Structure formats: structure tokens, C-alpha cells
Simulated assay, not measured.
Amino acid sequence: MLVLPAAVRDEIVDQARDGVPLEICGVLGGEYESNGRSEVRSQYPAENVADRPRTRYRIDPEDQLAIFDRLEARGEEIVGFYHSHPQGPPHPSETDTAEATWPDRSYVIVSLDPFEIGSWRWREDDEFEREDVAVE
């Protein structure tokens, strides 16, 4: 389960709407627990530097490292990542699955059409499992 504060959810949704027609992306910080429950405290937007940002997302490696440094300085852990699907479903695409690299972390996907927020955890066996999201 992913615990997501309503304010963080709203920020991510606003970013997704403002980013149309491109996918937006970022990192989720907070308290990561390997037992399947993590709590988000903050979100860190990142520039989407994918070669086709309408249908893909990629966080610049240097930007990602800077975000990780900010997380650590605030005493947070990497809970997961988020991105949007402006015109796609709220589940991982084949590309999302192929490029996932953080086992057991949450991958939040904001679908705008139709509107829905889904969260998935990538397992080392190359499988994504849908997880519940508790908005508080």
C-alpha cells in the first residue's frame, strides 16, 4: 500500500494537466518500507528528457542524483517515482515495465483520459503488481 497525502496527489495531478500533451515525471520521497507499505511525504518534479516525451518519460540522470541528494538531506527515502499518461491507461506500458529499475518501489501513474491514478510496484522478476493507494 502507498499512503499518499492529498496535497501531494493534487500537485502531481496539476503537473500532469499543465504538462499536456507531454508526460510529466518526478520522484516521491518519504518513508519506504519493504514490507509493502510506504508513506509519501513529498514529491520532486523532474524534467522529462525522453526522446519522445508525448509517450515516454525519462528523468535526466544528473537531475535524478540531485533529487536523491535533496531527499537524503531532508531525511527522506526514495519511495518511488511518478509520471503521467495524458491519453493512456493508469497502468504501466511495455516501455514502463522494460525500463523500471527500482525493485519494490512504487510507480504512480496519473491517467488524464480517462482520469485515474494507479500505483504499481515493480518486482525483480520483471513483474508489476498493482498496489492500493490510500489518500490522506
Score class of each variant (00 low, 15 high):
residue 78 I to M: 11
residue 83 H to M: 04
residue 77 E to P: 08
residue 15 Q to N: 11
residue 107 Y to H: 14
residue 56 R to S: 12
residue 68 F to M: 15
residue 53 P to T: 10
residue 12 I to Q: 03
residue 3 V to K: 11
residue 19 G to W: 01
residue 96 D to V: 06
residue 9 R to E: 12
residue 54 R to A: 04
residue 31 E to Q: 12
residue 135 V to T: 14
residue 119 S to T: 15
residue 98 A to L: 05
residue 107 Y to V: 09
residue 42 S to Q: 10
residue 55 T to N: 07
residue 39 E to S: 13
residue 1 M to H: 13
residue 47 E to R: 13
residue 28 L to E: 03
residue 29 G to T: 13
residue 40 V to K: 02
residue 52 R to I: 03
residue 105 R to I: 07
residue 40 V to G: 04
residue 3 V to T: 12
residue 91 H to R: 13
residue 77 E to R: 14
residue 111 S to W: 02
residue 88 G to W: 01
residue 49 V to H: 05
residue 85 H to L: 08
residue 99 E to W: 10
residue 29 G to K: 10
residue 113 D to M: 06
residue 127 E to F: 02
residue 73 A to P: 02
residue 126 D to W: 13
residue 60 D to F: 12
residue 76 E to T: 10
residue 42 S to E: 14
residue 66 A to M: 06
residue 18 D to P: 00
residue 73 A to M: 13
residue 11 E to C: 08
residue 21 P to L: 03
residue 38 S to H: 12
residue 21 P to S: 03
residue 38 S to R: 09
residue 39 E to Q: 13
residue 113 D to V: 08
residue 45 P to W: 11
residue 91 H to D: 02
residue 40 V to P: 05
residue 97 T to D: 03
residue 92 P to S: 06
residue 25 C to R: 04
residue 3 V to I: 15
residue 1 M to V: 04
residue 2 L to A: 03
residue 13 V to Q: 07
residue 50 A to S: 15
residue 113 D to Q: 13
residue 114 P to V: 14
residue 2 L to E: 08
residue 8 V to A: 12
residue 108 V to W: 02
residue 126 D to Q: 15
residue 26 G to D: 07
residue 89 P to G: 00
residue 35 N to M: 05
residue 7 A to Q: 14
residue 14 D to V: 13
residue 49 V to P: 09
residue 22 L to V: 04
residue 100 A to Y: 10
residue 32 Y to H: 13
residue 97 T to C: 02
